[in-house]
């Protein structure tokens, strides 16, 4: 089971990993994960922020759950190859549970987030960050930081994109480039800007 030594150094490593996941290795802009909903749900800042928030919660929580399931159950049993099935079941079950809990206790929040929750199960950013976490052998605390950072990074990218796209509504864009085409070009320019963060962390 991966550990990073004493507790304070682990916390520091988690903070650094979180920062890296938001800026230098943004899950969307450098790993292209979560593109489908990024292209289709980035038309309005409000909905983008709602979906982003839901993704932050789901990635952070499923990182914790899947870390425990992987290192405490699958690895001791030698069943690592079952991880894809286990991860996707845990993610689907967690999303379903979250949907029921929110519906029960906060109808207002359910109205704001409810429609996005089913979409999140098939959002590659969730499964992707869980798989990265396992491949990179992150310790528990670092995994929490990584999950949080991945979620925040994705949320930031989709909110920024929605803001830009709202402004684009009135501009004249070639017919073939309208919609997804221009979104991808903007995403490319954003990714270019984020390359500027490379080297901030060693």
């Amino acid at each position: 089971m991966p550990t990073a030594g004493n507790f304070s150094s682990e916390i520091w490593l988690a903070v650094v990993t979180c920062f890296a996941a938001v800026f230098t290795q943004n899950i969307l802009l450098s790993y292209f994960l979560g593109m489908c909903s990024f292209v289709s749900v980035s038309k309005e800042v409000k909905t983008a922020a709602g979906l982003g928030l839901a993704v932050v919660v789901v990635i952070t929580a499923t990182s914790i759950l899947n870390w425990m399931a992987y290192w405490w159950v699958l690895v001791p049993l030698g069943l690592e190859f079952y991880r894809f099935i286990l991860f996707i079941i845990i993610i689907a079950a967690f999303v379903q549970l979250l949907e029921m809990v929110i519906d029960r206790y906060s109808p207002a929040l359910y109205l704001a987030l409810g429609i996005f929750l089913p979409l999140i199960t098939v959002n590659c950013a969730v499964l992707g960050s869980v798989l990265w976490m396992v491949i990179r052998n992150y310790s528990f605390v670092v995994s929490v930081g990584f999950g949080l950072g991945s979620g925040l990074g994705w949320m930031m990218a989709i909110v920024a994109m929605a803001g830009i796209r709202q402004r684009l509504d009135e501009s004249k864009i070639p017919a073939g480039l309208r919609g997804p085409g221009i979104t991808l070009i903007i995403a490319g320019i954003m990714a270019l800007a984020f390359i500027g963060f490379t080297g901030v962390l060693q």
Binding site: G181, G188, I195
Partner: peptide, 11 residues
């Protein structure tokens, strides 16, 4: 070969 290239070429 860096990420922005992927976005631009797909666009």
């Amino acid at each position: 070969v860096m990420p922005p290239g992927g976005f631009f070429v797909l666009a």
